[in-house]
Amino acid sequence: MGAVGDFPLEGKIVVVTGAGSGINLAFVRLAHTKGARIIIADLRLTKDAEDFLATVKDTVIFQPCDVTKRDDLETLITVSQNTFSDIPDVYVAGAGVFDPKHSNFWDDTEDDGYASLGVNLVHPIKLARIAIRELIGKDKPGVVLIIASMAGLIPLYADPLYSAAKHAMVGFARGMGHADELEGVRVAAICPGITDENSQTPEEVAVEMAALVEDGTRYPGGTILQTSRRATAIAPPPEGFKILKEIISGSIGLPGERLKGGRGALK
């Protein structure tokens, strides 16, 4: 397939989870100005999102979505096909929760597992898996962008579950780096620092999100981009991270060949 390369948002179909507010809504607004057609996938919309949606009904739609439910994520594909006559080109796993009272390490309110990990950890992995399956099936290039956090690069004692999930997302995105060249699906992650009116704004983070999607030359698969009020830079991988793709292919086979139906099967 070859590397995805540069991937302008103009004309692309974009699905964004957690886009009812915050940096994901800011990204939706920016992607709209760039000519993208967009599915906002969230439990609900803020007033700002409702007002924005009212002005762009033909090119931006809202689909209620509980990202912890596989069926809801799969439905996003069907909605895209029914509304825009094709599957999404860009998949942004943006939904996340920070230290909810019902699901956190210190309050220890749950007996089996932690519900917050379903949002912060499992949902981005499932969305990426769905994206890769669909894109390979249609023989289309595409981009998966995971919204991680600076908490995925540094210790965060106050909320170890959030930190663990975001560290996992950094590792997952890096581990999926070879999908760019081998499968034609570029997977990357952004790690924003504190985002509010007193530091970097959602709009500033959205600009960097768009750059990660569009600039495949500067940001190839596996890129981890950290952003803060002070600076934006690619987070370097740990020493010894570089792995020959021949070793991976030889040990487990090309992952794309293991997908049901194979490349182009969904055409």
Rank of each mutant, 00 (worst) to 15 (best):
V16F: 14
G94V: 02
I40M: 14
G193F: 05
P155E: 08
V143L: 08
E134L: 00
F7A: 03
T83P: 08
G96V: 01
G175I: 02
P202L: 09
P237S: 04
V4E: 06
R218T: 15
F52N: 01
R129I: 01
P8E: 11
L145I: 12
H167L: 05
P8N: 07
G35W: 15
S228R: 00
G193C: 03
D108H: 05
A211R: 13
G171S: 09
A233M: 14
I23N: 05
Q226R: 13
F98R: 04
I61G: 09
A115T: 14
I252C: 04
A115H: 08
I130P: 07
T78P: 01
L25H: 01
V122Q: 06
A3D: 06
S251P: 00
G250A: 09
V79P: 06
G137W: 05
D215T: 10
C65T: 14
K57Q: 08
P220G: 06
K138N: 13
V97D: 03
T68K: 09
V213Y: 06
P88I: 11
F62S: 02
P237H: 04
L127S: 08
E214A: 14
M209H: 10
R230E: 13
W106L: 07
G96S: 11
Y114N: 08
V16D: 06
A49R: 10
D112M: 02
Y219F: 15
F84S: 04
E208K: 14
L76F: 12
P8F: 13
K57R: 03
V60G: 01
L212V: 12
E197L: 14
K101S: 06
D196N: 15
P202E: 09
R230P: 00
R229A: 15
A158W: 11
I147S: 03
S249E: 13
K138Q: 11
I252G: 00
H102M: 05
K57I: 01
I247V: 11
V56D: 04
D42V: 14
A211H: 06
N82F: 04
D48R: 12
K34V: 05
F62Y: 15
G152H: 07
V67R: 00
K245L: 01
T217G: 15
I13E: 10
A151K: 01
G250L: 10
G137R: 01
V122E: 06
K242M: 10
K12L: 14
S116A: 11
L45K: 07
G222E: 06
E197Y: 11
H123Q: 15
T55P: 09
K34S: 02
D215G: 09
E239Q: 13
G175H: 12
I130A: 07
C191T: 08
T195I: 02
G253Y: 03
G142Y: 11
K69N: 12
